[in-house]
């Protein structure tokens, strides 16, 4: 019961796509992802894209440290006039954004209403058991 497995690794990938850039995140995005996200941020700024999509489809966990890193990315991109948005956010990510009041900074209006109220049915638990 109390055996401890190695935590899931996270992966941060920066891909240029035409005018834009996709930052693809996978795994558990927390304090440990700080340096990787900072590096990704440097890469993005160097590419000077018009838009940045942060694809969080494969994020199994994110906490406020993870969000803080993404906020930092958004700030630096804003300085060079680049728009950042989050795509493929799971319910866990959306409800975290709601709790912290950060929804408007990452999600376009038509996606923002999708987070269910706390404790409602259908809360996505797939991510949490991914390494179980």
């Amino acid at each position: 019961m109390a055996t401890v497995s190695e935590p899931v690794a996270f992966v941060v990938t920066v891909k240029a796509t035409g005018d834009g850039v996709t930052v693809w995140l996978s795994g558990e995005i927390d304090l440990d992802a700080l340096d990787a996200l900072r590096q990704a941020c440097d890469e993005v700024v160097t590419l000077q894209p018009c838009t940045v999509d942060v694809d969080v489809a494969d994020v199994s966990f994110i906490d406020s440290s993870g969000l803080n890193s993404l906020l930092a990315l958004r700030k630096r991109c804003a300085e060079i006039g680049t728009h950042v948005r989050m795509v493929h956010a799971s319910n866990q990510v959306l409800s975290l954004l709601q709790m912290t009041g950060l929804t408007q900074y990452f999600v376009d209006d038509d996606d923002a209403g999708r987070a269910p109220p706390r404790g409602s049915a259908g809360f996505d638990t797939n991510g949490a058991v991914a390494d179980g």
Binding site: A2, E28, D32, L34
Partner: peptide
């Protein structure tokens, strides 16, 4: 350490998952 939160989550998840707490684990 920066890896500490992930280690702790992993240990907690293994202890709590599969019981009456499932709806709260996340």
């Amino acid at each position: 350490a920066r890896s500490t939160p992930a280690s702790a989550r992993s240990a907690l998840r293994h202890a709590l998952i599969g019981g009456p707490l499932d709806q709260y684990v996340d």
